[in-house]
Computed example of a mutant assay.
Amino acid sequence: MTTRTVEANGFRFAVDEAGEGDRLALCLHGFPESRFSWRHQLPLLADLGYRAWAPDLRGYGDTEPKPQDVASYRIERLLEDVAALIDASGAREVTLLAHDWGALVAWTFATQKVRLLERLVIMNVPHPAVFGAVIKRSAAQRRRSWYVGFFQIPWLPERMMTAGRARAIRRAFHGMAIDKSRFPPAVLDHYAANALKPGAMRAMINWYRAAVRYRLQDRDWPKITTPTLIVWGEEDAALGLETLDGTDAYVENLTIRRLPGVSHWVQQEAPEQVNAILREWLVGPR
C-alpha cells in the first residue's frame, strides 16, 4: 500500500492506493475519519483485482487546501470531487465503497448518475430519503442525531471537539465502539492529529452545516439501478435500525448484511466479517 497525491477539482488529494489496473474501487470515509479508516479493506480489494483508492476527502487529513466557508461543502461540490477523482484514475469500471458521510455522498452520486458505477457499497448510513422520513416521525432518532444541531452553532463545536488534544474525537471512536480493542491509542492518536491540523476541524464540521443550510434531503431521489450492498453494524449509537426500513423503494438491486454486536465503525471494528462479505458480494454475479 502506498500514498500518492492526486490533483483533482482544484485539490491535492492524499490517496492511499493498493493494487493496479483499470478497475477502480474508490473508498470514501466519514466523520471524523480519514483514508486510514479503509486500511483493512484496501489489501482485500487489491487481491480481488481492483486498483483501490482511499482519499482524504475535502477538508480532511493531508488533502489540501481546506476551505473554511460552508458553501464549499455543499453536496454539489462533494460530488464534483468524486467525479474528478474517478476521471483522474482513468478507470474503465468503478465500484464505490463508502461509510458515514462518505456514504451520503455515495448515495447521492449513484442517484444522480454523475458517473457510471458498476457496484455500490454503503456502510452504516441510510438512504437520505429514508432517513428524512424516519427523523420526522421518530423522537428516538432525533435524539440520536442531536449533534447535527449542535454543529450548526458557530465556532463552539470546533473549540469543544479539539479541546484536550481532541479528546472528543478520541471519545467518538473509543466510546461508541463495542470492541474497543480495535481502537488502541495509536489509532486514536491518528484521528486526533488529523482533527488538530490547521483548519481541519472547521472544515469537517462544515460538511454538517452545509447539509442543513442547503437542505441535502430536499431533492428528488430516483431509484438507483446500480447493484448495491449495505453493510450495517447493528449497535450503531447514531442511527437506529429503523433507518434501513424502506430502502428497497429507492434501490432496485439491494443486498443488506447486518452485523450484530458491531458499532457504527463497522469496517474498522469488524474487518474480518466485513471483508468476507465484500469478497463474497464483489466476486458474485451482477
Rank of each mutant, 00 (worst) to 15 (best):
G19C: 09
G19N: 13
E20I: 02
E20A: 15
E20V: 09
D22W: 04
D22R: 15
L24H: 01
A25M: 03
C27I: 09
C27F: 04
L28A: 06
L28Q: 06
F31E: 09
P32F: 02
P32N: 05
E33M: 13
S34A: 12
S34Y: 05
R35T: 01
R35C: 03
F36E: 14
F36W: 14
F36T: 13
S37I: 06
W38E: 11
H40F: 11
H40S: 14
Q41W: 04
Q41V: 04
L42R: 12
L42K: 11
L42Q: 08
L42Y: 08
L44D: 12
L44C: 05
L44Q: 13
L45R: 10
A46P: 09
A46S: 13
A46Q: 13
A46V: 08
A46L: 09
D47I: 00
L48D: 00
L48C: 00
L48Y: 02
G49E: 02
G49K: 05
G49D: 10
Y50S: 03
Y50L: 10
R51A: 02
A52P: 04
W53E: 00
A54H: 01
A54E: 00
P55F: 01
P55S: 01
P55G: 00
D56I: 00
R58S: 03
R58Q: 08
G59T: 13
G59F: 05
G59C: 10
G59E: 10
Y60N: 12
Y60A: 13
G61C: 03
G61A: 03
G61Y: 00
D62V: 02
D62S: 06
T63P: 04
T63N: 00
E64A: 13
P65Q: 10
K66D: 04
K66R: 15
P67N: 10
D69I: 02
V70L: 02
V70G: 04
A71N: 06
A71H: 12
A71R: 15
A71Y: 06
A71T: 14
S72L: 06
S72R: 09
S72Q: 10
S72N: 11
Y73H: 01
R74Y: 01
R74F: 01
R74Q: 13
I75H: 15
E76T: 15
E76A: 14
E76Q: 15
L79F: 07
L79D: 15
L79N: 12
E80Y: 05
D81K: 09
V82H: 09
A83M: 09
L85F: 01
L85H: 06
L85E: 02
L85T: 12
I86F: 06
I86G: 03
I86R: 09
D87F: 02
D87R: 15
D87I: 05
D87Y: 04
A88C: 13
S89N: 07
S89L: 03
G90F: 05
A91Q: 11
A91S: 03
R92M: 04
E93S: 12
E93R: 14
E93F: 01
E93W: 00
V94H: 00
V94G: 05
T95Y: 07
